[in-house]
Amino acid sequence: MMTDWSQERILVYAPHPDDETLGCGGLMSKAKAAGAEVFVQFITVGDTADQSPKGFSTAEERYAEIKKVADHFRWDDWHMALPGDEYHLRLDAVPRVDIAHIIEASSPLSMSRLRPTVVVAPHRTSYNQDHQAIAEAVHTALRPSDRALRHHPRLALAYEEAADQWRLEPTCSPGLIVELSEKEVGDKIHAMELYGSQCHRHPHTRSELTLRSLAALRGMQAGVAFGEGFHVLRCLA
């Protein structure tokens, strides 16, 4: 499938800041260079215990990182839906109908307002409860209906992250590989470096070597140098 990314309005769902880069940083780089519009809907962020020398990162630090990454990728806009510790790492406790309503209608970047042609969201096989919650809510928001009454993106994709494959349930390989250039892989890696509180040395799921290795693996599966893998939820030709 050949896609003219210059004609697309892409809406990416990121449960937390950095998920969009891990899942589709290469695609965002490629699409923006072609002339696409790219928007990122973050769901939540808060103070987080982590494996950094300091042992935690604050929401304020994470917002500063988002702004650097947004400038790097030249996003057209981004929005945080549910900020604060009440929701961060607790999205599985939020009723799915409430999250789906944010996605469908109430957010400034909702599907009904933005009318994206491409939607990219986490895959439901992630071990992370927030990722699962957003994957299921986006799936609900994409439910079949009369296109005259509700907006339907032409292409709906689920992105992968390296650690998603750790779950024990069987998962198939991504059915869509987006070819990436060395520059696009580099843009993805640099964006993760800008997420300084979340970037780690190897071995770690968010290390440079992990990102480059997964890009090389997906590229090999399509007979190219580098790639990014996606599961196709819907494709209207």
Rank of each mutant, 00 (worst) to 15 (best):
W78K: 04
P203L: 09
A33T: 03
S29N: 06
E37T: 10
L194C: 03
K54D: 11
H139K: 11
T48H: 12
G227W: 04
R96Q: 10
R113E: 06
V224A: 15
R90L: 06
D146Y: 11
G84V: 08
R212F: 01
V94P: 09
L27Y: 07
D164G: 01
R62V: 07
E161A: 14
E169S: 05
R90N: 10
A49P: 07
F42Y: 15
R90E: 05
R115E: 12
V119A: 15
V69M: 08
H200A: 04
M1Y: 10
C24G: 03
E184K: 06
L155V: 12
E179D: 11
L211V: 07
L27C: 02
G186L: 02
M111T: 12
R9Q: 08
D50G: 02
Y63I: 06
M220A: 02
L114F: 03
H88D: 15
R154F: 02
F56T: 00
V97W: 03
W78M: 10
W166H: 02
L236V: 13
K67T: 00
F226V: 05
A163Q: 00
L142R: 09
A121I: 04
E60C: 06
P83A: 11
S112C: 14
A225Y: 01
E228R: 01
T117Q: 03
A70N: 08
P122M: 01
I43Y: 09
L176C: 10
